[in-house]
Design a protein around this nucleic acid. Sequence first.
DNA 1: TTCGAGGCGGTTTTT
DNA 2: CCGCCTCGAA
Length: 721
Amino acid sequence: MDISEIIDPLNPAQREAVTAESGNRLVLAGAGSGKTRVLVHRVAWLIRVEQAPPWAILAVTFTNKAAREMKARIEEILATPIGGMWVGTFHGLANRFLRAHWQEAGLPHSFQILDADDQYRLIRRTLKALELDEARWPPRRAMGFVNQCKDEGLRPRHLDDEGDPYRKRMIAIYREYQSACERGGLVDFGELLLRAHEVLREQAAVRHQYQERFAHILVDEFQDTNAIQYAWLRLLSGDHDNLFLVGDDDQSIYGWRGARVENIQSFQKDYANTTVVRLEQNYRSTGNILTVANALIAHNPSRLGKRLWTNDGAGEPVRQFAAFNELDEARFVIERIRQHIQVDGYRRDECAILYRTTAQSRLFEEVLIQAEIPYRVYGGLRFFERAEIRDALAYLRLVANPDDDAAFERAVNTPPRGLGPRTLDLLRDQARAAGTSLWRAARDQLEREALAPRAAKALRAFVALIEQQRARSDRPLAALAADLLVATDLPGFYLKGKDDRGQDRVENLEQLVDTVARFEAETSEDEGDAGDRLASFLAHAALEAGEAQADPDADGVQLMTLHSAKGLEFPIVFLVGLEERLFPHSLSLDDPRRLEEERRLCYVGMTRAMHQLYLTHAEKRHLHGKETYPQPSRFLREMPTEPVESVRGSRAQSRPTPQRHGQEADDGLRLGQRVCHPTFGEGVVLDCEGRGASARVQVNFADAGTKWLVLAYAKLAPAAQ
DNA sequence: TTCGAGGCGGTTTTT
DNA sequence: CCGCCTCGAA
């Protein structure tokens, strides 16, 4: 076998990782160091050189996108489909596992996956059932509590209220919510992992079967694993010393949703037989960008340590811009983008604007629209998350499993068929009292003729509709979906609505039928009866919410949060809003660990840039409707001055028109000018008022904050630059 | 059932 | 300031 194809494109560190003999490997892969390449080549090495059968390999990622990419690249390098290899997300693989072992897991054959929105609704319904006031027991908090427990592998019975009444109530909510899930055969995201873990832990036969099978386990983005995911990996691996983990502690930015960077450290403790490989050569960014990024991240105390370097040149300096306000900032960025496109020949989609909070995108969008530059915003509602799609899916779910309460609640009166809160409350009470699903309660009530005639008639029609479709559910899925649209008249309902997006929604519904057809065509070889196909389509819809953008190929300037930029790269990057309380965000300031995570987020943003990195902040910004004068971000101060260059924009046009305030001060201080004060240090002039002896200026000092100073007394001198 | 007024909160997001 | 949600009135 010719192995040169596998190892020739690799540098020494990459080669060491790819060709490692058996044993546990931890690959600390810096940003842009060829992490995916190492994973893909490692798989190729295992199959081609070590003769591992594909079915003995398990490769785990965090997102479907990463899984798809890895799969495609493995197939490319091996020039063959990957056969029985398990490549997917933790959740996708857990789902696959549970579908195969539903009996051992104590789940119904066609259990349904709840996504975040379903879960939220079910939590609220649980609160209602427990007669808890949402104002006092916010559903978001309850949901957070449940998810956090599941992420840590904890069931209600493991939890102790510690005498805390709040905690006691949360545990009660968890218990009640969980039994609602059990009644309906519903599994939320956290439950997928937890349930899979429990089966492996408690069923030795199953555990051994998988431990024998997976001779090689590879994990991407290991720094993002939470407690249950790590425990799951440990069970799968057993004592086989077959883990190949790739990650970067400096890019851990999901601590707030349960990710534990510490897993990287504990891995080395839990597995004695572990060797560490560092990938530090960077193939993405210029030397200057790396210098500045390295310097910033060096301020984090608890790191494993890593320093990115490049063989390529230093490149352009990193550029920094202090905008007068957020409009000035946006105009500067868009002006620069225009230059890079027109003068340097970059494409629009080679320029990215990265921000800390989604709200920041708006102004950039407005200015881009004004400038008539196409753009694309990442994030937002995705296909399967749209209301109309979820409505249609609720019907499909009821066809698959009528006991699915979450789907029942959604579908029963959408479109409105006269089943109001009165009837619903009655059904809920009945279901709860009898410990059954809403569906059964509905049929029961109809049988016993316990309902008012109007409600009974409407409910009977609804039940008949679902049963009719159920009776014929062996048809192709697309036909079923199309039939349901006709039978429910969801399209008509949306067209009638006052909402001007009615037409869009109907088109989306039509697209859903296409999506179903395509899904069925692609998976038809896997056989399975019609019920299985429907269940697997629904799982697909829940696990992979689809693309947010209608047209992802469009050549537009890319706008996204720093979080969604992870894993991507762009020739030109604008990192905007580098201000205290915005970035680092005010809610992270009091906790050193969260502050470190903010710093890592900044590092992630910077290391997205290939050729040119801009860092901007505004001296003045509207936040929650108030005018604020933020300090420049501490991250700016933590960067070296050397390859960072301050740029001046042509900002006259974006300053506020001088009226009562904002006059030029007598001695020629201008708005936006940098000044120096003997006690307060350097700052920027924000505002002026008055004349002569009473003339005052407002200055935003880097360290001392914003102050009004009387010119006659304050010894202000123009600062350098 | 639908609409509008008023209250409230306001990181980050995948699965 | 803006968007979301709830609640009350028609």
